[in-house]
Structures are given as C-alpha cells and as structure tokens.
C-alpha cells in the first residue's frame, strides 16, 4: 500500500476513465446527491465510503444509469466515460450497462445453471457466433473470476446451489463475460464470510489490471486494502477524495476524520 498511492498521484488527471461534473440526483423532492465532481482513474480501484444514506450507492448507480429504472429519480449534471456523456439521449442504457457492469450486495445469480448464468449476457449481446465461442467466453470469465477450478465440473448445476462467496464470484464472472470496461461493486462482500471476502478482494486486485473498478463499501479496512483512491460521501456531498493512504492516515476534512476514526454522532 505504501507506494501505490504515489503512483496514482502521478497519474495525469486528464486521463480519467470516468469524469463526473456537478452531478445532482433527486428522488422526487429529495436532493440526494449535491454537486458531485469526481475524476476516476482507469485501471484502478476507487472506493466510496460514508455513513448509510450518504448517497454513495446512489452516486454509484448514476455511473451505469441504474437510477433510470426509478421513475421518481432525476439526474442532472454530466457524467462522461472516455469523454462521452452517458446521459446523452443517443446512448442506449443496455449497451452502457454492458460496458459498465455491476455487482450487488447480495449475490443474485439467475435461477439457471452456472454455465447459463455466465453465458446469459454474451448471448443477448450476440458476442458469440457459435457454441464453441460461447464455451470459451464462459471458461475465461470463470477463470478471471477465480471460480474455474471450483465450477468446471459442475457447470450444469444451478448457480444458486453454490456457496455465498462462490455465488458472488459467479456474479463477477457474469459481469466480466460481456467484456465491460468498468465494474461497479455495491458492497460486494457484506454478505460474505472473511475467507470468501478475502477471495473477492484478491480478485478485485487482479481485475484492476484490466478494468476500472468502483466499489462502495462499509468496511473502511476493505477500502484501505483494495483501493488506490478513496472518496468520502456525507449527506449527499462528496466531502473528500484522494489517495487511499492519505484518506486513512491524514484526511484533510474534519468530517472525514470523524468518520474514519468512529466519531460520528
């Protein structure tokens, strides 16, 4: 952890993968996200931390337009991925969500076989021309998700029959199968035991080489372990964002300090 943040600091901020500008989110009359500006670096892990209801998950969901599914939700401001505004009317949210995958708090495999769980996305997006290609995608996705050894002999068994940790890695494999560039994770380990958590964290660290990862977590130790940059949200505001080590050893803002040291009233 010691030298990683320094490398991140050296990264040119104009190379951002995701660039949010003056983002506002309203749920009906409630102003849930206020004026959030953030630059997210490619091929790195950014952690969002903050107390419950601070808006970190809401903001995460703006990155692949998951909020569109709620009628009362309105998003203003701009979010760009690789310089393209994802809220442009020309953008197809389904294509966007293939590019920006998501993993949720509770593992939610489809009630299908392990194979079909991973093959589902490539099938609907037409990523494989034949069964052999689909087999390849399924195998390589399970490998990247660190699940191949455990799953290869039971591909026809239901995904829901796996352990919680395996199910979560299956969901990660499912997200990877459609070749995303960004993976959003909303408390991916909160329903897992410490060993399964360690496996997912190890996986996150490997995925960082190829994907831009944004993770919402309630565990500050997890944020400190897996991320290169950390953003602290409070009451819908992005209070502070910076190299993870700085946020956890010497945060600038009093609110960040109070939160990470367990002093919130």
């Amino acid at each position: 952890m010691n030298d990683m943040p320094k490398i991140e600091q050296a990264t040119d901020m104009t190379d951002s993968k995701i660039s949010a500008n003056k983002v506002q989110v309203y749920y009906g009359d409630t102003h849930a996200i206020k004026d959030v500006d953030i630059e997210i670096q490619p091929r790195s892990v950014t952690a969002f931390i903050g107390p419950s209801g601070c808006g970190k998950s809401t903001f995460l969901r703006t990155i692949n337009r998951m909020n569109d599914t709620l009628d009362i939700c309105r998003v203003k401001g701009s979010i760009q991925i690789d310089g393209e505004d994802i809220y442009d009317p020309k953008v197809d949210p389904v294509q966007l969500r293939a590019k920006v995958g998501m993993v949720f708090q509770k593992p939610n495999p489809f009630p299908k076989s392990i194979y079909d769980n991973v093959a589902y996305g490539p099938r609907i997006h037409g990523l494989a021309r034949n069964r052999a290609e689909l087999d390849d995608i399924v195998a390589s996705s399970l490998q990247k998700a660190g699940l191949w050894e455990e799953a290869k002999d039971r591909l026809d068994e239901p995904g829901t029959g796996m352990s919680g940790g395996q199910q979560q890695r299956l969901c990660i494999a499912r997200a990877i199968a459609v070749s995303p560039e960004v993976i959003l994770m909303d408390e991916p380990c909160s329903a897992l035991d410490p060993i399964a958590t360690a496996k997912v964290e190890e996986l996150i660290d490997e995925l960082r080489e190829n994907y831009t990862i944004v993770i919402v977590t309630h565990s500050m130790q997890q944020a400190a372990r897996v991320s290169q940059r950390t953003a602290f949200f409070h009451l819908g505001i992005l209070v502070e964002e910076g190299p993870t080590q700085d946020i956890f050893t010497n945060p600038v803002d009093k609110r960040t300090q109070d939160y990470i040291t367990g002093r919130f009233g």
Binding site: M220, F248, T249, I260, T261
Partner: peptide, 10 residues
C-alpha cells in the same frame, strides 16, 4: 480491537 484510522492511528 479498534483497527485505528487517521488521528487515532497516528
């Protein structure tokens, strides 16, 4: 017990 952070860690 506490996994100290920030000021406490220092």
């Amino acid at each position: 017990r506490r996994q100290p952070m920030g000021q406490d860690l220092r």
